[in-house]
Amino acid sequence: MTEYKLVVVGAGGVGKSALTIQLIQNHFVDEYDPTIEDSYRKQVVIDGETCLLDILDTAGQEEYSAMRDQYMRTGEGFLCVFAINNTKSFEDIHHYREQIKRVKDSEDVPMVLVGNKCDLPSRTVDTKQAQDLARSYGIPFIETSAKTRQGVDDAFYTLVREIRKHKEKMSKDGKKKKKKSKTKCVIM
């Protein structure tokens, strides 16, 4: 069974824990209790493949930012979460993405942009803004509501699919490099 290491990042209060708990335990946590770091595991079937999701729910508070490099190193894919009623959390996505790329030393890291709290009427981040940002990053965008469960499975499952595509691409690139290195030079 394939294991996928997913990391949920975003500013404090955007609903990272609520999304994760909704996926794992099928219930909505409405009281806000700032996370330092929590880890969850769940076995699911995605596109006919049974897999184990190892999900790291991270601290959004700035005082825990020193811990970010460590979990970013171990993560295979990242859910970059903002709240649709919090423009600052949307603007912060850029910083999370840049930090992930720096730590992973790669421009090509599996990510999904997630606009959470889409059940709320007080939207300050337009869907088109988020779609445009995701398009500019070359990553999928999904709106979710941890409260109603809308888009929750889709967000995590899409990230797994992005990781699969990335692994497939990397193995193809690896095979191309191996083929090239088999060419021999004969000096007579």
Rank of each mutant, 00 (worst) to 15 (best):
E63M: 03
E63V: 02
E63H: 04
Y64E: 10
Y64H: 14
Y64T: 13
Y64M: 09
Y64D: 08
Y64V: 08
S65L: 03
A66T: 12
A66Y: 08
A66L: 10
A66K: 06
A66W: 05
M67D: 07
M67S: 07
M67L: 10
M67I: 11
M67E: 12
R68C: 04
R68I: 01
R68K: 07
R68D: 03
D69T: 04
D69P: 03
D69I: 00
D69Y: 02
D69R: 04
D69V: 01
D69M: 03
D69A: 06
Q70C: 07
Q70Y: 14
Q70P: 04
Q70F: 12
Q70R: 06
Q70N: 10
Y71L: 14
Y71K: 08
Y71C: 14
Y71S: 15
Y71M: 13
Y71Q: 15
M72S: 08
M72G: 04
M72R: 02
M72V: 09
M72Q: 05
M72A: 11
M72C: 11
R73M: 09
R73E: 12
R73G: 11
R73H: 11
R73V: 07
R73C: 10
R73S: 12
R73Y: 07
R73Q: 12
R73P: 04
T74N: 12
T74I: 07
T74D: 14
G75K: 02
G75M: 07
G75Q: 04
G75P: 03
G75I: 08
G75L: 04
G75D: 02
G75W: 04
G75N: 05
E76M: 15
E76F: 13
E76K: 11
E76Q: 14
E76A: 15
E76G: 12
G77I: 14
G77P: 01
G77R: 01
G77D: 00
G77K: 00
G77W: 00
G77V: 11
G77T: 01
F78M: 06
F78G: 00
F78A: 02
L79E: 00
L79C: 04
L79I: 14
L79N: 00
L79F: 07
C80W: 02
C80G: 02
C80Q: 02
C80L: 15
C80H: 03
C80T: 02
C80Y: 06
V81A: 08
V81W: 00
V81F: 07
F82I: 08
F82C: 14
F82P: 01
F82V: 10
F82T: 12
F82G: 15
F82A: 14
A83R: 06
A83F: 02
A83V: 01
I84L: 14
I84G: 15
I84Y: 15
I84F: 13
I84K: 13
I84N: 15
I84A: 15
I84C: 15
I84E: 15
I84R: 12
N86P: 02
N86A: 05
N86Q: 03
N86Y: 02
N86C: 05
N86I: 02
N86S: 09
N86V: 02
N86H: 04
N86G: 12
N86F: 01
T87A: 10
T87P: 15
T87W: 04
T87G: 13
K88Q: 13
K88V: 10
K88S: 14
K88L: 10
K88D: 13
K88E: 13
K88M: 08
S89P: 06
S89Y: 03
S89V: 04
S89F: 15
F90V: 12
F90W: 09
F90C: 10
F90G: 05
E91P: 02
E91R: 05
D92T: 09
I93R: 00
I93S: 02
H94S: 14
H94G: 05
H94W: 05
H95P: 02
H95I: 05
H95Q: 11
H95A: 14
Y96G: 01
Y96A: 05
Y96W: 15
Y96Q: 04
R97H: 09
R97E: 08
R97P: 02
R97I: 15
R97G: 04
E98S: 05
E98C: 02
E98N: 04
E98P: 01
E98V: 01
E98R: 04
E98L: 01
E98H: 02
E98G: 02
E98F: 01
Q99A: 07
Q99H: 09
Q99T: 04
Q99V: 13
Q99W: 11
Q99S: 06
I100Q: 00
I100Y: 03
I100N: 03
I100W: 06
I100K: 00
I100S: 01
K101T: 08
K101L: 12
K101H: 06
K101C: 10
K101Y: 03
K101F: 07
K101R: 11
R102H: 08
R102T: 07
R102N: 08
R102P: 01
R102E: 07
R102M: 06
V103L: 14
V103E: 08
V103K: 12
V103G: 06
V103C: 13
V103D: 09
V103Y: 15
V103F: 15
V103T: 08
V103S: 09
K104Q: 12
K104W: 09
K104N: 15
D105P: 07
D105F: 06
D105G: 15
D105M: 11
D105C: 11
D105T: 06
D105Q: 13
D105V: 05
D105I: 05
D105R: 10
D105Y: 04
S106W: 11
S106N: 11
S106F: 10
S106P: 04
S106I: 10
S106M: 13
E107V: 13
E107D: 12
E107T: 12
E107Y: 14
E107M: 13
E107R: 08
E107C: 14
D108M: 07
D108K: 08
D108Y: 10
D108I: 04
D108S: 06
V109Q: 02
V109W: 05
V109M: 05
V109R: 05
V109G: 02
V109D: 01
P110M: 02
P110G: 01
P110W: 00
P110L: 02
P110K: 01
P110H: 03
M111V: 06
M111Y: 02
M111A: 01
M111E: 00
M111F: 11
M111I: 11
M111H: 00
V112S: 00
V112H: 00
V112C: 02
V112L: 09
L113N: 00
L113C: 06
L113E: 00
L113Q: 01
L113P: 00
L113T: 01
L113F: 13
L113A: 03
L113M: 06
V114S: 01
V114T: 01
V114Y: 02
V114A: 02
V114K: 01
V114D: 00
V114L: 11
V114H: 00
G115M: 10
G115A: 10
G115V: 09
G115F: 14
G115N: 03
G115E: 03
G115H: 04
G115P: 04
G115Y: 07
N116F: 01
N116Y: 00
N116A: 14
N116P: 00
N116S: 13
N116G: 07
N116W: 00
K117A: 13
K117R: 14
K117T: 13
K117I: 15
K117S: 14
C118K: 05
C118W: 09
C118S: 11
C118A: 10
C118N: 06
C118P: 05
D119N: 13
D119W: 02
D119G: 12
D119K: 03
D119I: 02
D119Q: 05
L120E: 14
L120I: 07
L120G: 14
L120T: 13
L120S: 12
L120V: 12
L120F: 13
P121W: 06
P121M: 10
P121R: 08
P121N: 13
P121K: 08
S122T: 11
S122Q: 07
S122F: 07
S122H: 11
S122N: 12
S122L: 07
R123G: 14
R123C: 12
R123Q: 12
R123I: 07
T124I: 08
T124G: 12
T124P: 10
T124M: 10
T124R: 08
T124Q: 12
V125Q: 11
V125E: 12
V125D: 12
V125H: 09
V125S: 11
V125I: 10
V125Y: 10
V125C: 11
D126V: 06
D126M: 06
D126F: 07
D126G: 08
D126Q: 07
D126W: 05
